[in-house]
């Protein structure tokens, strides 16, 4: 069996305890991973004067794949987001956010199985902002043809490889005719290479309404960065919240898998938070590394533990600690072996 070398970024707040629990589960799955730990986030500021030290960048560049715990992003003022910096530095242009109903988490929907492909590097996230007078601020919404084409192309290729049937573009091109219009044009151009896949487009506000009324109608969605940021959380809410939402940031040569929830600093050290979001991100990572059997084993054991509800964390009605939940998943894997 091939050994994988993966950069582990435990992050901040509850991140380190979550990542240790996730590592326990992944290591027990039979996959051979050498973990290399690196630092990221506010804790690095005092030590190195930056949220993302060069040592961390070099390690990720070497290993090409990383699993990341949550970090804290200051609101309004202060330093730039470590998450966004990572995406920018490695040009991780595709943010892949599956939203799939976990059977035991009861929701009013029968089936939800949506994969969101969020463009991850431009739009208003280009961070080009100015005060143009003392009472007017502006933020440039940067949409480019190559940036739009490659996320659409990526989404179509992913859809084709995974047997998905429909890919829809989400936009507001009826109002932002230049920027969102360009995004939609590039999507249509990329679609020409994939005639077997049904395409469509939906205006972002209508898409939100449709998602809460009839989410089962959607298969794959391609979105510019800001709409993607919002709609991926909406989709996560439909299937159980951010506590179960995986995320992958994928570039041409490097991939970082991460939970999308915050670092919950007030719970740090209490070992009570649910590590499932990082765990399902780890499952995505294993599938990306072609370790499908290990990924399936963990997922099956996790669903079984959730279904039994004996060793689940407080957010899903239990009293188990982070470690007890992780150990229950490990025990379940071994029991089925």
């Amino acid at each position: 069996m091939a050994q994988h070398v993966v950069t582990m970024l435990p992050g901040e707040g509850t991140g380190p305890e979550i990542c240790e629990a996730v590592r326990l589960v992944i290591d027990a799955s039979g996959v051979d991973i050498k973990w290399e730990y690196e630092e990221i986030g506010l804790g690095c500021l005092e030590k190195y004067g930056t949220l993302l030290p060069d040592k961390t960048i070099k390690n990720i560049a070497k290993n090409k794949v990383a699993l990341k715990g949550p970090t804290t992003t200051p609101i309004g003022t202060g330093h730039k987001s470590a998450n966004v910096t990572l995406r920018k530095v490695f040009d991780l242009f595709a943010n892949v956010r599956p939203a799939k109903l976990i059977p035991v988490l009861k929701r009013p929907w029968d089936t939800i199985d949506i994969i969101n492909f969020r463009e991850n590097t431009e739009d208003s996230y280009a961070a080009i902002e100015h005060m143009v007078s003392d009472e007017v601020a502006q933020c440039l919404k940067v949409i480019t043809w190559p940036g739009s084409y490659r996320i659409a192309d990526f989404a179509f290729q992913w859809a084709k490889a995974n047997g998905r049937k429909k890919v829809y573009c989400v936009h507001k091109a009826n109002i932002m005719k230049m920027t969102d219009g360009l995004f939609l044009d590039a999507f249509r151009e990329a679609a020409k290479k994939y005639p077997e896949i049904e395409i469509g487009d939906v205006i972002v506000d209508n898409c939100c309404m449709q998602l809460v009324r009839n989410p089962a109608q959607f298969d794959c969605l391609v979105l510019p960065n800001l709409y993607g940021d919002i709609l991926t959380d909406l989709c996560a809410g439909l299937v159980g919240g951010l506590g179960f939402a995986p995320g992958a940031n994928i570039g041409d040569n490097c991939s970082i898998f991460e939970a999308v929830h915050g670092s919950a600093p007030k719970y740090a050290g209490m070992k009570k938070v649910n590590p499932s979001a990082v765990l399902v991100s780890g499952i995505m990572m294993l599938r990306w590394l072609k370790e499908t059997a290990a990924a399936d084993r963990i997922e099956k054991a996790m669903f079984a533990v959730l279904d039994e509800r004996k060793h689940v964390t407080y957010d899903v009605g239990g009293t188990a600690t982070t470690d007890e939940y992780a150990q229950a998943i490990v025990d379940k894997m071994h029991a089925k072996a």
């Binding site: 060069d54 960048i57 560049a61 530095v89 490695f90 040009d91 242009f93 480019t144 043809w145 190559p146 940036g147 490659r150 570039g251 041409d252 040569n253 490097c254």
Partner: peptide
Amino acid sequence: FVSPDLMMVNW
């Protein structure tokens, strides 16, 4: 540092 992976446009 500039990542060799970084895609740039003409702007």
